[in-house]
Computed example of a mutant assay.
Amino acid sequence: MKFLIFAVCMAALALAENTYDSSTDDIDLSEVLGNERLVMSYSKCLLNKGPCTPEVKKLKDKLPEILETKCAKCTDKQKQMGKQLIQEIKSKHPDIWSDLAAHYDPQGKYRQSLEEFLKS
């Protein structure tokens, strides 16, 4: 019986480590994206041109892995938020999107998988 409880705990721990922290999943992206000052501040952080809030720093630290793994550790909510964020930035701030793409994907190796992600 103890082994079964131990095995269940280890499985739960393994599952928990296979997704990113969901503590920021309740952020209202519409509010953030509707605030020009926040958009500029957050984009400067992501581009190493300004200070970062702890939440944006977490994202910044994870971005290379997110791109590499096609968001494999993202929760469904994080995937939905990522799509919303990317689509809004691409359409309303193409200059920022261009800078972010050049910074995080200078060879364009993630472009196709990103487009597939947005369509999914």
Rank of each mutant, 00 (worst) to 15 (best):
G82M: 09
L59S: 06
A72G: 06
Q80R: 14
L29V: 12
I5L: 12
P51Y: 08
G50L: 06
K79Q: 11
K60G: 03
A72R: 05
I89H: 01
K90V: 12
D105Y: 01
D99I: 07
F3G: 12
R37W: 12
W97T: 04
D105E: 04
F6N: 08
D28N: 15
K79W: 03
F6P: 02
T19A: 12
L46H: 00
C74H: 04
Y42G: 00
R37H: 12
T19H: 15
R37V: 15
H93Q: 10
C74I: 05
D99W: 02
M1E: 10
S23R: 14
V56W: 00
H93S: 08
S98V: 10
T24A: 13
F117Y: 06
S91C: 09
K119H: 07
A102P: 00
Q78I: 01
K79F: 07
K44T: 08
E36S: 10
R37P: 06
M81H: 06
K109Q: 12
P106Y: 07
Y42T: 00
K58D: 07
G108R: 00
L38H: 06
A102R: 09
W97M: 08
N48G: 04
C9K: 12
V39G: 00
T53M: 04
L85W: 06
E17Q: 15
K90S: 08
T24W: 06
D25K: 06
T19R: 13
D95R: 11
N48V: 05
I86K: 08
D105Q: 05
L114Q: 01
Q78V: 01
A11M: 15
D26M: 12
A72Q: 11
D26H: 12
R37F: 14
Y104K: 02
K119C: 05
G108N: 02
I86P: 00
E55R: 10
C74S: 11
S41L: 15
P94R: 05
D105M: 04
C52K: 02
A11D: 09
K79G: 07
S41M: 13
E36Q: 13
Q78L: 03
T75L: 08
E17G: 14
L85M: 11
T53V: 07
P94C: 03
L33H: 01
E31K: 09
K109G: 09
F3E: 15
A7V: 14
E55G: 07
